[in-house]
Write a protein that binds this DNA or RNA. Structure first.
Lengths: 225, 225
DNA sequence: ATTTTAATAATCCAAAGGGATTATTTGCCT
DNA sequence: AGGCAAATAATCCCTTTGGATTATTAAAAT
């Protein structure tokens, strides 16, 4: 089974070199190539499930939309994709932001071709996010320097009592949360946009709201997702 | 030049196996063996400079004085020594405490003999603290789960992690999250609905989305509120 | 067997939302 | 003093939503 990879880098030479490295390894296939974050998200939207990458190798500094923003948006809208930073930058600010945005790993470009492919392969085998040693070290130092500190996790009894939504309605609510329009919901579920709309209005009725935003608010606040 | 190593572990079999592994590698010599933290500090006091270890491989759970306390005290009194945790424990609490105490690295005992000696050798060569991949992964997750958070280093420096929203825009995003329409936002902030709308569209621009639902999705997922 | 519920779908209408553009004012930075 | 970013506001245009209503079908409950 080939690992599907997306490559996002503003320099075409970088993209092509990386592509060659990965293809030569034999376990990877490239399904998306993009030259910046905007281009990447654009291309991801028009991708069918089969082509959805397993991994997105993301450069950080890019025009239009940088890597951190692309990871934040991408990891939110495509949660199955593992976003791995691949960059020359190793300053703490960028590392922290990228991780916070949802990066699953952080690799430095001065890593050898073998190391990069190996670490990605390891990630696929073990499910463990790849980190260049220098980055791991930086993170340790951030903790030691009190730049990072432990936050007591708010122990919350997470009870999800639904507002008597039917299964179909919960399914559609989830798509609302994901930001789809009636049309898109229709396509996704193979029903007409009109029917999708009818469901949504029924949901509003049950939740006693009258807009998407309010429905999402409730859904998030009350843990209906 | 041989790397001088201290081994601190309460089980003598562990100590001896580890010692053999390191000696077999050829680049290491063992200058201290101790069976707990207290024993370790005791022996370190009565050591001349020549014998001072470069690295201390420290188990965590030990009688009398555990590894965390030993690292805290040891890294304070012997700052030239790199303390590396070597343990079977990988729970977040222990990881965090050990790092906080001054651990320079954190290795898991299920790592192969070659990996451990290699990583210690790497550490000596590059000055970078060794981390088992599983530990690195745990730390990433801690950051992502908001269990670790960036401490405001310069007081007041308002953290805008990504998307660079202005204060006004964050304020308006919050109102979007609360389900208000342009009109309502206008009334609430004493501005025209048109201006509210302009702000919202600017927010969409920065978040790279094009609907309320998508904006809320990002806001919730990435904690922009 | 019949009633009820859920899912499907369509149509009409008014309101709100999204996008592009242009313009003015304010305060901050150099 | 001049330049620049942010907040304010309006207008035009088109799409999407939200709401109400009606209708058909399949499945579940009574």
């Amino acid at each position: 089974m080939l690992i599907k990879v997306a490559i996002i880098d503003d320099k075409s030479s970088n993209r092509n070199i990386l592509k060659d490295k990965l293809l030569r390894h034999g376990h990877f296939t490239i399904t998306v190539m993009a030259e910046d974050g905007r281009d990447f998200l654009e291309k991801m939207k028009n991708l069918d499930e089969k082509q959805l990458p397993d991994v997105a190798l993301m450069d950080l500094e890019m025009p239009n939309m940088d890597g951190v923003d692309a990871i934040a948006a991408g990891s939110s809208f495509f949660p199955s994709v593992k976003f791995v930073v691949l960059t020359i930058f190793d300053d703490e600010e960028k590392i922290f932001k990228a991780i916070k945005a949802g990066a699953f790993g952080y690799l430095l470009k001065d890593e050898s071709a073998e190391n990069i492919t190996d670490m990605l392969w390891q990630m696929h085998e073990s499910g463990v996010g790849p980190l260049s040693p220098g980055i791991a070290h930086k993170i340790l130092q951030m903790v030691q320097n009190n730049e990072l500190t432990l936050v007591p996790k708010a122990a919350g009894a997470n009870q999800k009592l639904f507002f008597d939504l039917t299964e179909r309605e919960r399914e559609i609510l989830q798509l609302l949360v994901d930001g789809l329009s009636y049309k898109e919901i229709g396509v996704r579920l193979s029903i007409s946009a009109n029917t999708a709309k009818k469901h949504v209005i029924n949901i509003y009725d049950k939740l006693h709201v009258n807009s998407r935003a309010q429905a999402l608010h409730l859904a998030y606040e009350k843990g209906l997702l």
